[in-house]
Design a protein around this nucleic acid. Structure first.
Lengths: 335, 335
DNA sequence: TTGTAGGCGTTATCAG
DNA sequence: CTGATAACGCCTACAA
């Protein structure tokens, strides 16, 4: 349907212009010093004038290698993953690896499609952001035989390498902080159920039960927004008028809850203590500053990329599962 | 260096397993009905058991077409572009087109690299998010001969098609709203200077000057964060203690400024009116609700993708530059 | 319904 | 330092 599209210049076109064979041009492109000076200058000129664009397809076809790695993100709108990508690329870019990004809206089926697509481009490795995958995803990865790093949490059945942190322990820690401040009627608020939300809820219940308290939670399938945090606060208050604390699965919900509380004249933290997770910038800007789990997301990205490149370089990996830990930021919202 | 990597199964492998030629397998994969039933079942089984992964390289190589379009994003952490991508994919996915995402941190040089990379994969079209490009970027795109849509603003020298809105007029409108509320000493706050920040500042000055007032602005090269909004507020107050309004280049800064003002006991909007741009969810969650320019970002994505696919389908484009307009949300932060 | 031949653009390999 | 040849995996075109 688009027969009129100009054919792109190839090595052959450059070669003809210069009067050498494409082989010489190919050499020039990979290492200019490998051709004679006179030839070099003429090729350089021809490449420039034709606006040559390299074509990866033949290379991929014959090498089955691409110097590209695929990154799978659950969501583009979650700040957390922007930081992970930054960490990854701080390692891959200097090493000359390209990154191909794909997102899948937290859906394992969509993740499968996206992985199939990346594999069809022969990426040399994959960095995943989830621990739940379809059977076909696992099989495709096994067939491709490329190294994989699962990031963020710890899969019960790892595909290959893992770089994560213990969300359950972190949530336990944060819940204990709330308990230490005397908050015994905390409610856990969760949105779109991804693995991390569930793990944090488990950590919350761990801590509550260890303290001899029953926990309470409110979940929704909607994706997290600030306004949703406000709505969940209202719902929680209606259901449990005596609540004295909120532990939110992320900072978006938590900040939304703080704002709604303040708008309604509920003092934070005096009447209700509020904690979040991920420690986004907005939690530092709001007053009171938001207590939050500090996730080492950029470090996770860096470490994942480092492991992957090490494996691609044939180095043995002594410790394929790495826990990057976490810290708790107490802020001013716990009382 | 990775000679031990398993070779992936090819059509040939499947064919040998089944006892047909790869041509038959190829046909089966594209249209199972085109193969005899008995053959079909045996091929299906073999495909499954080998975990066959399609390989795009040969196809790209021989067709110079990929059914993929490249999307260039200035930043992964800016919510605005997540919405644009969603709009694009709501059109491209049903049409069977893949999207390849690349980001360039607002740097034209990095944009150039990323575009080169996408072109090397033979994307069929490009959707850009900026109007400033290097010379080489323009040349590469011309050489590739593929359709391009520039989105968000209106380039003075468009490459091809354009889907945007008038940021300058929008900023003029918002400034006029501030003026209508009697705010004559408004300051414009800008962060990392991209084209939109500059256009909005121009719109602000347009309106101030039309009202016979001198404008004031405070710019920084840092990227926008909520805490930065607070800091800029402080700086502005120090420099112009009499300021009665802030117009921020985006909602992040504006929300940060509101929070800092509130923490310092400055009433918004009574003492200082505050406006932002982009109309993110947080502006609706905060109290007072933030006045903001409502940018039709998802619509921009949809329209851009629709134009691009129309062109790829060979349809004539009657109107290659489209203005999707804007609205102003007054919220409660203007007084 | 299935098979054969040839080509897409590049690089590895071997010659000169 | 440069050239010739073959190969990568799939699809189009043609043939049986």
């Amino acid at each position: 349907m688009n027969e009129n599209r100009k054919r792109r210049p190839t090595l052959q076109d450059i070669a003809e212009l210069v009067g050498v064979t494409k082989m010489t041009v190919s050499r020039y492109l990979r290492d200019p010093a490998s051709v004679a000076e006179a030839t070099r200058l003429r090729i350089a000129e021809a490449v420039e004038s034709l606006g040559y664009i390299p074509n990866r397809a033949p290379d991929i076809l014959s090498n089955a290698t691409s110097r590209a790695i695929g990154i799978l993100l659950p969501s583009l709108s979650n700040q957390v993953f922007a930081a992970v990508v930054q960490g990854i690329e701080s390692v891959t870019r200097p090493a000359g690896y390209q990154t191909l990004l794909a997102h899948y809206g937290y859906s394992p089926e969509r993740e499968e499609e996206q992985i199939a697509s990346l594999l069809s481009y022969h990426v040399d490795g994959l960095i995943l952001s989830d621990s739940q995958h379809t059977e076909r995803t696992r099989k495709m990865i096994a067939t491709a035989g490329i190294p994989v790093v699962e990031t963020m949490d710890f899969p019960s059945d790892p595909i290959d390498m893992v770089v994560g942190m213990d969300h359950r322990a972190a949530a336990r820690g944060m819940t204990n902080l709330l308990l230490a401040r005397g908050r015994t009627r905390t409610v856990y608020l969760g949105a779109r159920l991804d693995v991390r939300t569930r793990l944090r809820m488990e950590g919350y219940y761990d801590a509550m039960q260890a303290a001899g308290l029953e926990g309470r939670h409110l979940l929704t399938g909607n994706s997290s927004t600030f306004t949703l945090g406000g709505e969940l606060l209202e719902q929680a208050l209606e259901r449990w008028p005596d609540l004295d604390g909120l532990f939110c699965t992320n900072d978006d919900l938590a900040v939304g809850a703080i704002m709604r509380a303040q708008a309604r004249g509920i003092a934070v933290p005096q009447q209700i203590a509020i904690a979040g997770s991920n420690s986004l910038n907005i939690g530092r800007a709001i007053s009171p500053r938001l207590a939050s789990i500090v996730t080492p997301r950029e470090a996770i990205g860096r470490e994942a990329a480092t492991l992957l490149l090490a494996r691609l370089g044939g180095q043995p990996i002594d410790q394929p599962v790495r826990d990057l830990g976490f810290t708790l930021f107490e802020g001013e919202s716990l009382g």
